[in-house]
Amino acid sequence: MKFKGTNRTIIILLVAILNVALDQLSKAFVRGHISPYQHYSYLNEHFNILRVENTGAFLSLGDGLMQPFRFILLTLIPALALLGTLIYVLIKHNLTSRLAIGIVCCIGGGIGNLYDRIVYGSVTDFMHIRFGALQTGVFNVADVSIMVGFGLILLDAFLNRNEGKKEEVIAEEQSE
């Protein structure tokens, strides 16, 4: 299904706003009720709530950068990339709905984390999953939005690739 016109723009903006709102509400709850490094375990210690303030990017990368490099790499460039990508999604009308929503989920998650970095000086991470030797880093709802978005983008690429192959087979059969 393809969304068109004003409805498309409204849906794109609503998905972005919803992602940012859910992220910020969850982080506000955690900041208000859980002290830094306070730890709660659930599901036989497979799911943990642990408040961590991340001053770097993914897995604290860039944490030790000096200013102004830290601002440029962790705030300015991401802000410009998010704005440019949002404009791209809004003006590029031939994107599938799945691809557009995937990109917008990534944008919403990015905005949520960028907002934290600008307003609080760090990103609040609070979820951790562990199954035996397999475990995640500490993450937040914005990170989940980003991962869901990338999943939709990859799914769209896979499905479009298969559709392209079907069209090639049909074209070959018709030419024979």
Rank of each mutant, 00 (worst) to 15 (best):
A79M: 15
D143N: 08
I107F: 04
L154V: 13
R51E: 04
I34F: 13
L134N: 10
G102W: 02
G62A: 08
G121C: 04
F139T: 02
S97C: 04
Q38M: 10
T75C: 06
G109L: 04
L152Y: 04
P78T: 14
H46P: 01
A100D: 09
D143S: 10
R130N: 09
S41K: 10
I146G: 01
A142Y: 06
F71N: 11
S145Y: 10
T96G: 07
G137A: 13
F150L: 09
R161V: 12
V144Y: 02
D143T: 08
I111P: 02
L155V: 14
V104T: 09
R130L: 02
V141Q: 00
V138Q: 02
L86V: 14
I72Y: 09
N140A: 14
S97Y: 02
G149D: 03
F139K: 03
I87H: 12
R161K: 13
I118M: 15
M147D: 04
C105E: 00
R31N: 12
E163M: 07
M66I: 04
F131G: 05
L50W: 12
G110W: 01
I34V: 14
F150Y: 07
A142I: 07
H93M: 08
Q38G: 14
L82T: 15
D63C: 11
L159E: 03
A81E: 00
L59H: 00
L99Y: 00
C106K: 06
I49Y: 03
L43N: 06
A81N: 05
M66F: 03
I107S: 03
V138W: 02
I49G: 06
L59E: 05
A133G: 07
T124C: 15
R161Y: 14
S60T: 13
M66W: 00
G110K: 01
S122G: 10
